[in-house]
Amino acid sequence: MMILLGMPVIQIILFGFAITTEVKNAEIAVLDLSKDEATRKIVEAIEVSEYFHVAEYVHNTKDIDNVFRKGRIGLAIVFSENFYENLLHTGKAQIQLIADATDPNTATTLTNYATAIINNYQRQIVATGPVPYQIVPEVKLMYNPQMKGAYNFVPGVLGMILMLICAMMTSVAIVREKEMGTMEVLLVSPMKPIIIILSKAVPYFAISAVNLATVLLLAVFVLKVPVMGSLFWLILVSLLFIFVSLSIGIMVSTLTSKQMIAYLISGMVFMIPVMLLSGMIYPVENMPAILQWISHIIPAKWYIAAVKDLMIKGLGVQAVLKEITILFAMAAVITAISVKKFKNRLE
C-alpha cells in the first residue's frame, strides 16, 4: 500500500532528470512575409536538411497559432517583411523561431538546428558580399517559456503510474486469487462473475484516483506546472484512461493463472512500450515508421497527448476529441475481449 501511494512521488522526482534526444524530420511551418531570394534559399536549406520537413506554409500570424494547436508541428519560422532588402541595405534582418516547448528537449534541439542552418546561410552570403550581413534569429517558446522539464514529464508520469497501478496491480490481484484457489470458491458462490471482477477492480480505481490527485497536486504546488486548461476535463480524461488500464489488467488476468506471468505480461507487454513508445521519453516523430505505427495502439500515447493539450497548452476539450474517441474505442474493445475470455475459461 505504501508502495502504491508513494511511487508517484518518487517517480516524479526521478524523472526530473530530462533526457536529451535527437530530432529527425520534424514537421515545421513557415510564414514568409517577404518571399524573396534570401528567404527562399533559407527555406530550401531547411527543407533539404534531414532535421526538418516543411509541412505547412501559412499566410499570417494568426494561422501560426492554429497550426500549433493542431499539435502536428514543433517549430514555426517567421521571416519579417522585406527580409532581403533589409539584409542588403541595413545589413540586418530578423527571423523569428517559434517552438512548441511543452517538450523542452525537442524545442531546444529544434531551435538549435534551425539557428545553425540560418548561420550557415549567413556565412555563405558574408563570404560573397562586401558588407558584413547579420541575420538575427529571435527565439520564442510557446506554452512553456521557462523550458521546464516538468512540463513534459508530468503528463508522462501520470500516464505511466496510472497504467502501472491499474493494469499490473489489477491483473496480479485477480491472478493471485486464482493461484490461491479462492477464485474457484468465489465462482461457485451465488455471486455473478462480473460482480467478482468489479469488486477486484474498484479498490484499484480508488487508489488510482488518489494517485491522480497526488501527482496533480505535486505538479502544481511543488513543480509549479500550472493546469492551464479545464481541470474538469483533465480529470474526466484521466478517469477514462484509468478505465482503459483497468480493463487491460482484467484482460491480462484472464490470459494466465500465475502471478509471475501476470507481472511479466504487464511489465513487458504494457509497461516498457508505455515508457518508450508513448512519447514520454523519446519523441515519437523520430522513431522508424513501424514503431510509430505501433505507438498508435498504446493507450498511454493518446492519454499523454490529451494531458499535454489540456494541462500544459490549456486547450479546450474540442482539441482532444480525437484522443477521447480513441480511448473510448480501446476501452470498449478490451472490455469485450476480456468478458469473452472470462466466459470461455469457465467452459
Binding site: 484457489g181 479462492t182 474457484e184 470458491v185 451465488p190
Partner: peptide, 19 residues
C-alpha cells in the same frame, strides 16, 4: 447454474481461504 450455486457449498483441492 446460478440457482444451483445458491444451494451448494464447495471446498476446493487447494486450501482456499484468505491467508
Amino acid at each position: 447454474p446460478e440457482k444451483i450455486k445458491a444451494n451448494i457449498g464447495y471446498m476446493s483441492q487447494k486450501f482456499s481461504m484468505y491467508e
